[in-house]
Amino acid sequence: MITPDQVRQWARLARLDLPDPELERLQGDLDKILEFVRALQDVPVESGSVPDSVSESERGNHPLPSVERPDEVAPPLSREVALEEARSTSDGHFAVPAVVESEAQYERRTGSAGGDSNENTVLREDSDSREPGSSGDSNL
């Protein structure tokens, strides 16, 4: 059984505002759907790693060698076009409500530390347990 808290947690990850009536309805739907989907886990499959696009099975869709483009520059969009549909802009920038520290703190700024030092660099915390190969794996 899915709990409302679980649905709230997924909605939070997906940045979806869910009014209570919607939440209630979605909880019921998702419960049914997930129960149906859970049957997948009984399907006998080759055990081992998750086949992703690297695996033999999907290679059928991806001819080798890999698809790459030459390192050539094409003209970018004009700034006017780039900003045209933005509902809020400021001085050639896209504008969003101020990222205040409490919000910025838990958002990881991926590898962006050490940007312009005259900017107020706000960092995002990283505590992802699934990140392989971060030196953290063996640094605990």
Partner: peptide, 13 residues
Amino acid sequence: SKHPEAGDDTESR
């Protein structure tokens, strides 16, 4: 992202 100095603006650019 360019964030405002504390309190002097309401938007990040």
